[in-house]
Design a binder for these strands. Structure first.
Lengths: 253, 253
DNA sequence: GGTAAATCTTGATCTAGGTCAGAAAGAGCC
DNA sequence: GGCTCTTTCTGACCTAGATCAAGATTTACC
């Protein structure tokens, strides 16, 4: 294993890199004490950037690491029985990719860069070991995985019950929320994925995505210029989504 | 907390109950040493059975425990913005319910019994604490959550890409696999959920589920008698599913 | 900077599965 | 055993979104 080698190349500064990272408030280190961040920092390897279209890992490969996105965007996808791609998620900075590989020790999906993307590689065996020593890190890991489970379930609701307008509105609002959390504008952002990829992810044909976006633009819910999106009428978009995003707070049957 | 009280009532025998449980080979204790099973056993509370229609927990309630199903079946579901139910999962014996509550400390779904059902309540804070002391338990927990993530992603593929026949075939095959793992017949079993609930889960109308099942019966893929299902032509059902279930082994692009 | 390839848009048509309606078969319940 | 309530089945119709087709625009690459 050449890890120490690579580490010395990337981690040569004395101060923790995680501590300096603008994403530390969102990524794993949240709620860690300074000395613990340093220990986490030791096991993390900063990889050189992926170019658009590069694979981070491929479906079927041996699982050994999870990855935190530092910049750029990734998509994960399955190849279905007849060779078509099914996108299962998009990953923005501070988000963790690869957690689904823990169970079988094999990545059940492929991960590919949608644009130039940098990631931190976190060897899972080290992370697991460290999590025994740092309870708050373990808790954080459980939380991240739990969050992924409930997010995926929201996605199942979207795929199973929503119509095209609701799907696209949910998608835009979801991105908006994620950008906002990271300190970027919640109303204006750039889509790093193609219309085709959006459709694939949402269970819609490309043409439908295009038509819905055009329609939203005409009804002045959003303003579109190619991949640049500006959400103009938040209340209306939220109404379409059904504000199901926080239905945890809604009264029960 | 009245736990010790309740424990003494349910856990009074000296031998570990987990150890005697027929599900221990599938549930959390897998890969645990005897003394560790005993420690896990101490924190588990066997609850009295739920009757059909009883809630185990409700969307929005404070999260404090995960539950292992001992017998019977549960469904979890969201209430969407306009009051309809969206089923996000069915849970059979040995399966763990409630993991999605860890992140927000609130159950993001409700869980309801489909028939008389017994569960083991596992207070999460205790489980988490114990997992620090027993690395294999921690690993097992990570695996269970990871498995849930990849299963849910398979479900997203199903909802986003499959047609009605493929959805129903996948559903039947999935149940079959789960029953088999537990030592029951893989080919003949009883559906504990209604056609309506199947449709809800698969993103189909009741009528469509009914029609597909009838069609499968006519083409002699399955034999149906009310809720009793017998899978007759496994190869054909698998062909419909596309054997996408183990596409992890398929070559990557 | 120019050309080929990919992506996006828009219109016209088609269809899988939804919706509506009613009959048949179970499941509780007194 | 009869009554009601729920679930399941089946047929007739309809619609949201897929598919097909063909331009328009963007992106990538020499």
């Amino acid at each position: 294993m050449t890890m120490t080698h690579t580490q010395s190349r990337f981690n040569s500064t004395l101060t923790s890199q995680c501590q300096n990272c603008s994403l530390s408030a969102l990524c794993l280190p949240i709620a860690l004490a300074d000395e613990d961040i340093n220990r986490l920092d030791q096991i993390i390897e900063r990889k050189k950037p992926l170019k658009k279209g590069d694979f981070l890992f491929r479906q079927g490969e041996a699982f050994d690491s999870v990855y935190a996105v530092r910049s750029g965007t990734l998509k994960t996808f399955n190849i279905t029985s007849y060779g078509e791609e099914q996108i299962t998620g998009f990953y923005c900075p501070s988000e963790l990719v690869g957690l689904s590989g823990i169970d079988s020790n094999i990545y059940p999906v492929s991960a590919k860069a949608l644009e130039t993307t940098t990631v931190c590689e976190i060897p899972f065996s080290h992370l697991e070991e460290l999590s025994s020593q740092i309870p708050s890190l373990k808790h954080q890991l459980f939380k991240v995985m739990s969050r992924k489970i409930s997010d995926d379930q929201q996605m199942m609701v979207l795929l199973g019950k929503k119509n095209a307008d609701e799907k696209v509105a949910s998608f835009l609002l979801n991105l908006s929320t994620r950008f906002k959390k990271r300190g970027y504008s919640a109303s204006a952002f750039r889509l790093s994925m193609s219309r085709g990829e959006i459709g694939n992810y949402l269970g819609l044909a490309v043409e439908t995505v295009s038509r819905v976006i055009t329609r939203f633009q005409k009804s002045e819910l959003i303003h579109v210029d190619g991949k640049e999106i500006e959400i103009i009428d938040f209340p209306e978009i939220q109404k379409l989504v059904g504000v199901a995003s926080d239905c945890g707070k809604i009264a029960n049957i």
